[in-house]
């Protein structure tokens, strides 16, 4: 039987936590409601967290925008290419680093080689100049290659691999397999939970990245979605000069503010969609990966 005082504490505690979630969701719901409300209702300040005068006109406006769709496609290309390269290279680096120093003498050297890049940042300008000099400016490679080895992810995979029993490797060698085969047939299947976490982290990172697109892409039609959204929010989102006729007609229903809100949500949607699946993995993947082997 719980004491009265303790039961009171439990209720207050749960109430405070629920309040925290409300505070957390409130700004997001407010902007979501604005995106579904009419121009008039929004400028009259009637919208809080529920759409007033429900309309899809702002979304209609967003999807009629050619540059929005082009940048959406750039983002999808970037995510596929970027996550693919991140995963292949991270696994290829993590596997050798997961070996014991007594079996693989150079391990410590290699590990420092990669970890040092986490400790000392080369800086914005030199990095920018190298991208320029390697001739990948204004191409999708500028968004993918400079960050092709996320060292933090490598360490997560490495630590996960180190929790696997060493006997696995030994028996694989007994069967005559080499390192490549052992990695492919023994380690990869067992590392899947950690790989799923890391792949999702890398996916989110590529989807969200905007700064590289801004500095490496010369033409706006090469912008990934986040960069495009950033440029819209930073400047006026309704540049009258390059507006299509259809968009101009919509202006009587859509305001700068509702269109912005809709754009924010379309960009956030992919993250919201994968989040429920993702959530199951990341906690476990993170916690196991941080345990030292």
């Amino acid at each position: 039987m719980l004491s009265k005082k303790y039961r009171f504490f439990l209720i207050v505690n749960a109430f405070l936590l629920l309040l925290l979630t409300v505070a957390c969701l409130f700004p997001i719901l407010n902007v979501l409601a604005i995106s579904f409300s009419s121009k008039a209702a929004v400028s009259a300040g009637q919208v809080s967290i529920w759409p007033v005068d429900f309309t899809l006109k702002s979304y209609d406006y967003v999807f009629n925008n050619v540059s929005f769709l082009t940048s959406f496609i750039v983002s999808i290309k970037r995510v596929i290419l970027g996550v693919g390269i991140n995963m292949v290279l991270s696994v290829l680096v993590a596997y050798p680093l997961s070996k014991e120093a007594q079996d693989f003498g150079s391990r410590t050297w290699y590990a420092w080689f990669f970890v040092f890049t986490m400790l000392f940042g080369a800086g914005l300008i030199p990095g920018f100049l190298v991208v320029k000099e390697t001739g990948i400016m204004d191409s999708i490679w500028a968004l993918v290659l400079p960050g092709a080895i996320p060292v933090f992810n490598v360490l997560l995979i490495m630590n996960y691999m180190r929790t696997l029993p060493k006997a696995l490797e030994e028996s694989s060698f007994m069967d005559g397999a080499g390192h490549f085969r052992t990695l492919w047939t023994v380690y990869l299947p067992l590392t899947l939970p950690s790989l799923a976490t890391v792949a999702l982290f890398s996916l989110v990172a590529h989807w969200n990245a905007w700064f590289d697109g801004m500095i490496y892409m010369n033409r706006p039609e090469h912008y990934p979605l986040s960069t495009y959204l950033q440029s819209l929010l930073q400047f006026d989102s309704m540049n009258q000069t390059n507006m299509s006729l259809e968009q101009a007609k919509m202006m009587q229903f859509v305001s700068n503010r509702t269109a912005r809100a809709a754009q924010i949500f379309v960009s956030a949607l992919p993250i919201l969609l994968i989040y429920p699946f993702f959530q199951r993995y990341f906690v476990k993947g993170l916690v196991v990966g941080s345990v030292k082997g």
Binding site: F120, A122, V130
Partner: peptide
């Protein structure tokens, strides 16, 4: 992309 910029 990391060490050359450091030298840079």
């Amino acid at each position: 992309y990391c060490y050359i910029p450091m030298i840079g």
